[in-house]
Amino acid sequence: MIANIPYLTVAGLIIIGLYTLLFKKNLIKMVIGITILQSGVNLFLITLGYRMGSVAPIFTGNADNPVMSYPVPQALTLTSIVIGVAVLALMLSLVIHIYRHHGSLHVSKLGGDDQ
């Protein structure tokens, strides 16, 4: 189904993100994985609001009103992107601290349950 390619792209991005999270041992790479996951979800939100042949939902004063894409998903994506930035900043500062303590970014340096 050609019309579903955007959704398959979204699925691909999410899978790449999850793969990075599950198999990469470097903390920075894990953070990148989360960012890719986030991009996948954001792309999904944006694709939901598109209508064939539509323009951005901004009125320009022209008399003929063209078909407009949905504004709500774009607003949601905006919120989601800002949240992504916030989470990214926090994660990176925690990674900096972990690096200070262990001198390494390898995931095995994260102490487990044992003392």
């Binding site: 019309a3 579903n4 959704y7 699925a11 999410i14 999850l18 209508r51």
Partner: peptide
């Protein structure tokens, strides 16, 4: 786990409404 999630996601992509026609 990744395979299961991948299969589910691909399936849900096929079941979504066609792109561009909400």
């Amino acid at each position: 786990f990744l395979t299961i999630v991948a299969v589910f996601l691909m399936f849900s992509a096929l079941f979504m409404h066609p792109f561009g026609e909400p």
